[in-house]
Amino acid sequence: MKLTELFDKGEFVITGEVGPVKGCLRSTAGSKLPQCAQEAELVRNVVHAVNVTDNQSAVMRLGSLAASVKLKERGFEPIYQMTCRDRNRIALQSDLLSACSLGIDNVLCLTGDYTSLGDHKTAKSVFDIDSVQLLKIAKGLNEGHDMMGNALTQSTNLALGAVVNPNFEPLDLQLLKMEKKIEAGAQFFQTQAVYDSAVFEKMVKKTEKFGVPIQYGVVIIKSPQMGKFMNENVSGITVPAWIIEEMGKVAKQDRKKKAIEITAKLIREIKPMVQGIHFMPLGWADIVPEIMKAVSSAA
């Protein structure tokens, strides 16, 4: 089911991110379930849909569309992530037509991490169009025409998602772009990871009037090292000292328990402000159901 239909019904929409594998998915006799499918299985009972990343962090992997289709075949609702980094406007439009033809109902339109952050640093970055333009183009395909105004034999029917970073300073500039995304066609938003409910509240106060559903983005902090690493290396995310300290206090084998506690606390604080949660578990998908259990048991 399209995410927009879930939001329209008033559902609190939970999604989880999975990263396609670095390799192909041709099944052979005795082949194991690929990791992205394993991760999706771990959250099957708690999420409405799974985001499938598009060569995340500019690291070359299985295509988001192929992985989305494979997950759909396994009964998941995929959100096909599409970035502007690797394809020009012809390829992006063509892939949106392909996605819809292959049964994909949701697409998340992103700019994409820069090529130099990934594992093919010498590649030519494309960025022919930006995420606002991609949303407008995708909306046009839904309405039956390509970006040049040429009629399609059949329109796409895709729910269009976008991202916003509440940590961005100046926030008003980020929200100016968010408004442009809404005008272009964005129907729901997923946020960058936020670890401070005050930061989130500041954004929500300004975005409430936009009337679009927002899912709170959650990246589970797995260790104090990861928190420090993210502060030093991941732009646009700040992990507060208290989380790093708390994770540092517990023994290694108790970290998952602590991560459940911390993440559930953050979600409880932010939940009343949003219309859903988007998990980016980065390998710890197994604790997502327990986090949600902890959230609801305390409610």
Partner: peptide
């Protein structure tokens, strides 16, 4: 770096 025309990506930090 990305030649964006409609505003920043989400990646900037401290300007």
């Amino acid at each position: 770096a990305k030649s964006l025309l409609n505003g920043p990506c989400g990646g900037a930090e401290n300007g």
